[in-house]
Structures are given as C-alpha cells and as structure tokens.
Design a protein around this nucleic acid. Structure first.
Lengths: 114, 114
DNA sequence: ATAAACCTTAGAGTGCACTATAGAGTCAAT
DNA sequence: ATTGACTCTATAGTGCACTCTAAGGTTTAT
C-alpha cells in the first residue's frame, strides 16, 4: 500500500503538517518522493515507523530521543531508552504526589486559620 | 520593610525579570512606584502576596488562574481553585500510571518477540 | 478544458511563562 | 564630580513541537 500525505495522516494519526515537519527534521522520511511534483509517498514500512513514533511520543520521548532511536536501524537503544523513560515517569509521579501532599498541607493550614 | 526590586527578588525567589513581568501583566504590582525614577518598591504586603504566588505556581496554577485569585482580594475562590488543582494533579497521576502500564506492556511485547 | 481537491515551499506564528538585550536614567558612596 | 551598582523601558528571543499562511504547482474527475 502506498499513501499520499493526507491518507497517511489519517491512518497514523499524525497531522500532515507534522509529517512534513518530521520529514524536514529527518525523523521520518517518506518511502518515496516524486522527483517532479515533490509529492511525498508513504508505505507499510513508513506505517510501522510512524506508529512506533506515535507510541514513543505518548511515552514522553522528545524529538531528539526519537531521532536517536530512528538513526540506529537495529533499535538497539530502544529498550534502554524506554527503561529510562519509565524511571522519568516514576519520578514525575513522585513529584506529583509530593505536590499533592503539600497542597493538602496548605489547605489544612487555611482551614486552621479560617 | 520596603524593598527595591533586587532585594525583593532575593527574599521571594522570583527573579527581577519575573517581578517586572508580573507587574506588566497586573499580577503583582509594587506597593509603591517612584513617579520620577519609576523604581518599583515592595513591602510586607507584597511579600505575603509574592509567597502566595510562589506556592500557587508550584501547585501548577497558570498565570490566568493566579490573576483570578489576586483580582478578588477576599481570596474567596482560593480554596475552590486549589481543590480543582488537586483534582488535576490526581488526573495527571492517573495518566502517568496508565502511561507506565502501557510502557510496561510495550516492553513485555518486545521481550516476547525478541 | 476546467474546476475542485489535492500537493509543494518558505517563513511566520502559537502557547506558556518567562529571559535576555540594548540603551538610557538613577542612586549611593567616595 | 565621578564611579559603580543599581534601575528603567521596549522589544526580541527562548524552548518545545508543532501549526498556520500565502502563493503557487499537480492531480483527478467531469
């Protein structure tokens, strides 16, 4: 299957603008670019990579991190990066629970005074 | 006690630039502004408000929300807003734990295949 | 052949909350 | 009076990841 940009945007959930942007920065290049029209065409390999990117994005990976993953085609660093992301998520959860505790403390103090 | 901007920045932990910015947007105005030099001066009332803003900021309040708090001098909406923020924090925690679960799922699938 | 619906590029704009810069005025101490 | 350390304003820049716009070229259906 090969897709024009709008079709590919629809199936991947990435916007056309994002797809052009990902091409510009070398994160996800189309499978084929027509040399005359410069139209971008995507295929099933692109689809696999795009869905991976969508996943990584939800896991909180930055563009730079995703580039590192994509630049090594063996995906050797993928698990390492994901374990790091897992740690980051744990830290964020701890920060939020701490913040909630502090907020509760603040609310309690307000009640004591009022 | 009345403070010039640098002194006030030091005691509150807000930068001078942030204090000017908060003045510009009407979030925290100095207690007094010299009409000739336009120097800003802050006092103990400013200090109380500034420390409140610092707290609210750590709780994830936006500038707009802080403005709403500051615009009603009775602080009637403070508790309501903080309870809303508490709910937001809870939602964020849930989103993060969900994300972590999804990440674990993804890691497990990778292991199954590899 | 023509019109609608697509696609292209370069560059500017978005949101948030600042942060930095330049050029100029002011204050405190000597 | 001069120096140095402060302050002021207006405006531009930051970071991140897009998102939008304008002006134009291409493809598809009729």
């Amino acid at each position: 299957m090969h897709y024009k940009i709008s079709e590919f945007a629809e199936v991947t959930g990435l916007s056309k603008e994002t797809l052009r942007y990902y091409d510009d920065i070398g994160l996800l290049e189309p499978a084929y670019v027509d040399p005359n029209s410069h139209y971008r065409f995507y295929d099933d390999g692109s689809y696999f990579l795009a869905t991976l990117l969508v996943k990584l994005r939800t896991f909180g990976c930055t563009i730079q991190e995703m580039k590192q993953i994509m630049d090594d085609q063996s995906f050797e660093n993928l698990e390492t990066l994901l374990l790091e992301k897992r740690e980051e998520i744990n830290k964020e959860i701890k920060q939020l629970t701490d913040k909630r505790d502090e907020l509760d403390e603040f609310l309690k103090d307000g009640k004591d005074e009022g």
